[in-house]
Structure formats: structure tokens, C-alpha cells
Amino acid sequence: MRWYWIDRFIEFESGRHAKAVKNVSLAEEHLHDHFPCYPMHPNSLVLEGLAQTGGLLVCEQGGFTEKVILAKVPKAHFHAEAIPGDRLIYSTTIEYVRPEGAMITGTSYRGDQLQAEVEIVFAHLNDPTVGSLFDPATFLRMMRLLRAYEIGRAADGGPLQPPRCLRETTEQAASP
């Protein structure tokens, strides 16, 4: 299993908001383990999907230079279950970014029904020893896999591009 809890971005506006899709499928193994005989997508993983949507938005806003970790969930309300066949739309908005961290608000919709609403606080880690957890190539691959650069918009309204430092670091790592 890969720790991707969103399938693709459908909107990505640098520094402002991002929207992603999560398709819930009966083929996903974890649905059968959460409540045996009652397959559902756990709300903790809805939260993780919203954190990935908003966390990548925060990382991108900082040019992927900050080590962004989920630090706190001040609010998480779940109004409905997510079950096989559901297409969840996660919308996240940056509320603030400070040198110490950032906060996003997010919603999950199932059709026109509000499924979940959250607030998430991210911290910026300053510890240099955790550098290996935040490999630039991983970020770049994830953003491409989720199609952020196909649909995304930069702060000036132009197409979203990977930051130069991320491209250079990735190219250096790939060269013999």
C-alpha cells in the first residue's frame, strides 16, 4: 500500500487553495479491515487526505524549503460515512502562514453533501537531522503524480511550475 490518500488535484492555486479527489473503492484493502463486514473509508484517512491536500499546498507556497509536518487538528467534524463508490472532493484553504507554521481549513464533500470539515495546523520543523524524511525528489514525484502541475496556477495566475531548487536537486540526484 502507498500512503497516498488523494487521487489527484483538480484545482491548485498557489498560496490560496487546493481541491483534490478521493475515489473510495471496494478494491481497497483497508475498507475491509476497519469494520469487518461493513466496508467504509475511515474518517482518520479522510483527515489524512485533507492534510495531504492542504499540506502540499503549504509546502508549495514555501517553495518546498520548509519541513512541514501535521502538528495539530483543532477541529474535525464528520457528518457522514464515506463508503465504496463515493467520490470525495477535498477543498482546503490556507488561513495563515507564519515562520513557525501554517493553518488550513478544509471540507470533504460527497456530491452536494458535506461529509467532513476540519482545521489543521502544520509546524515548520527546524531540526536538520530530519532532512532525509523530506526528499525533494519525493515531493516533485508526488506533485506530478497528482497532476498539480497540469492544472495548477501560480500566485500570478500563470501555470504552476516546480521551483527551480526542487528541479535542480532532483536532476543532480538523478545524474550519474
Binding site: 502538528a71 495539530k72 495563515y96 495546523v121 509546524a123
Partner: peptide, 21 residues
């Protein structure tokens, strides 16, 4: 400690002011 970041943000928003680090 992480709560202070959250609290500062909420105070800034409630009172429309800036609280430097």
C-alpha cells in the same frame, strides 16, 4: 507549545492585529 501558534493566529483574526513572533 504548538497551541501558542494557533492561539496567536486566532487573536490576530479576532482583533485584526499583527502579533510578531
Amino acid at each position: 507549545s504548538i497551541d501558542f501558534l494557533d492561539i496567536v493566529f486566532r487573536l490576530e483574526k479576532a482583533f485584526d492585529m499583527k502579533i510578531p513572533r
